[in-house]
């Protein structure tokens, strides 16, 4: 285990230290005093554990393959951008474009997330599929262009806040979104179908919610007994018939 003090370090210096420490064979790193440094864990392709105390900056874990990143506070935008595998656990809220184009691994967020969560998330193999569980609420355009994977939105502590924003699932053409307590259909894009999860889906929800509760200390039995809805795309080819072959 290695502790790094990130206070007053510029992101490139900090990331260079992280890379060096990993190269030296360290498999657990705790970084203290993080304050908005970008790109932590970016492009790391080893199954190391990185614990972050403080608020990491944008593109945390971008392009990563394998690490587990635990953030003990809030996180900013672009978390897990184009990540291939590994896990990101956020004990607070996360910003916009969470999990942009991720195609494997998982992200668990205890609190709320911003706009465009899981945009372009995709899956291409049966056994490799990304999973994102969001404890709180999400902003507009959630699941936009989503082409695969599983997104679970729990809406815990939602108060009067809307569970999701507008344009849910715009351009979605793969994967599934599960929302606890149902969704306001008027917020969904016309390209998605809303249905009831089947037993297999419920199993998937249970496994992930259980993990979520273990991580953040919620009561799984209580959460899982509420109603969930499933949102899937109507077509694998949402824009197929807008065009004709020319000239």
């Amino acid at each position: 285990m290695k502790r790094i003090d990130a206070s007053n370090l510029k992101y490139n210096v900090l990331n260079d230290i992280i890379r060096r420490v990993i190269e030296e064979g360290e498999n657990k790193i705790i970084i203290d005093g993080v304050c908005g440094q970008y790109y932590i864990g970016c492009g790391i392709a080893k199954p190391v554990e990185i614990v972050i105390n403080g608020v990491p900056g944008n593109d945390l874990g971008a392009f990563m393959e394998g690490p587990t990143i635990i953030v003990n506070e809030d996180a900013q935008d672009g978390i897990g951008n184009t990540m291939s595998s590994g896990e990101i656990i956020i004990h607070g809220n996360a910003g916009d474009v969470l999990g942009y184009s991720m195609r494997g691994g998982s992200i668990f967020v205890k609190g709320n997330v911003g706009y465009r969560a899981c945009i372009h998330m995709k899956a291409y193999k049966e056994d490799v599929s990304p999973t994102v569980v969001i404890g709180g609420c999400a902003g507009a355009f959630m699941g936009e262009y989503m082409a695969g994977g599983t997104l679970i939105l729990l809406g815990l502590n939602r108060d009067k806040k809307r569970l999701t924003g507008n344009y849910l699932g715009t351009g979605m053409h793969g994967g599934a979104i599960f929302v606890r307590h149902g969704v306001d259909e008027s917020l969904c894009s016309s390209e998605v179908l809303i249905s009831k999860p089947d037993d297999k889906d419920m199993q998937k929800i249970l496994t992930n919610v259980k993990k979520f509760c273990d991580l953040f200390g919620f009561d799984c039995d209580k959460i899982i007994k509420d109603e969930f809805v499933k949102i899937t795309p109507k077509s694998k080819r949402p824009y197929g018939n807008l065009y004709i072959p020319g000239p």
Partner: peptide, 21 residues
């Protein structure tokens, strides 16, 4: 192509006009 692009076979490969970040 699906394997190379990392998308499911037979789906439209959509790259939207903007990068959403």
């Amino acid at each position: 192509i699906a394997q190379t692009r990392m998308i499911p076979k037979g789906t439209d490969a959509l790259s939207p006009a903007p990068h959403h970040d």
